[in-house]
Amino acid sequence: MARILIIDDDGGVQATIRLLLERAGHSVVVASDGRKGLAVFDSGNFDLLFLDIFMPGMDGFETMRLVHQQQPLIPVVVISGNPILSGSGPDFLTMATKLGAVSSLQKPFNPAELLAAVAGCLEAAKSPSSSSVTAGEIALGP
């Protein structure tokens, strides 16, 4: 299966995503912030990256920019616990997909959404001409 890097400052989120992905047969590595994530990313060959947008130090936008400088085609799933405010502020998940993320998930998300995002991103990575996909656009399978 895939080798996946999770960069998130919340240990509970890291553990949950890791457990779900490992149960699905993936190999998972975690990092607690953008700088540590970049160091791990430099030393490994990953198929997919889960990236929290809001972290102390280096945020997810800067981390994604630096990751894409090194490996432009790696699929990135951005995640955020900040609420999407209708009309009263920026939608950071949508902003991140416009800046290069393939998919996005609003915390809390359910296991089916997470696994569907992974499947969609890995499929999109096989055909680089695919357009970006958000969690809402991925059909959930059985």
Score class of each variant (00 low, 15 high):
M1T: 03
R3A: 05
I4G: 04
L5S: 08
I6Y: 00
D8F: 00
D8E: 10
D10C: 01
G11S: 13
V13W: 06
V13D: 05
Q14Y: 06
T16E: 03
R18Y: 09
L19C: 08
L20E: 07
E22A: 09
R23E: 10
R23L: 10
G25Y: 08
G25T: 06
G25N: 12
G25L: 15
H26A: 03
S27C: 02
S27E: 13
V28C: 13
V30W: 00
A31H: 04
G34R: 03
R35W: 02
R35K: 13
R35P: 04
R35E: 09
G37N: 12
L38F: 12
L38I: 15
L38E: 06
V40I: 12
F41L: 13
F41P: 01
S43P: 08
G44K: 13
D47V: 09
L48G: 05
L49W: 02
F50A: 00
L51K: 07
F54H: 06
M55R: 11
G57E: 05
G57N: 07
M58V: 11
M58C: 10
D59V: 04
D59R: 06
G60I: 03
F61T: 06
E62T: 13
M64V: 02
R65D: 06
Q69W: 15
Q70W: 13
P72M: 15
P72T: 11
P72I: 12
I74T: 06
V76T: 09
I79K: 00
I79M: 10
S80Q: 08
I84W: 08
L85R: 11
L85T: 07
G87P: 13
G89N: 08
P90Q: 07
P90W: 07
F92V: 06
L93C: 11
L93Y: 10
L93D: 02
T94Y: 02
M95W: 02
G100T: 12
V102D: 00
S104P: 00
K107P: 12
K107R: 08
P108F: 00
F109T: 02
F109E: 01
F109V: 08
N110G: 14
A112H: 12
L114Y: 00
L115S: 07
L115M: 10
A116T: 09
A117N: 02
A117S: 10
A117C: 12
A117M: 02
V118M: 04
A119D: 14
L122N: 02
E123V: 11
A125V: 04
A125S: 14
K126G: 13
K126R: 11
S127V: 15
S127Q: 15
S129C: 14
S130F: 05
S130R: 15
S131N: 13
S131P: 15
T134S: 06
T134N: 07
G141H: 12
P142R: 08
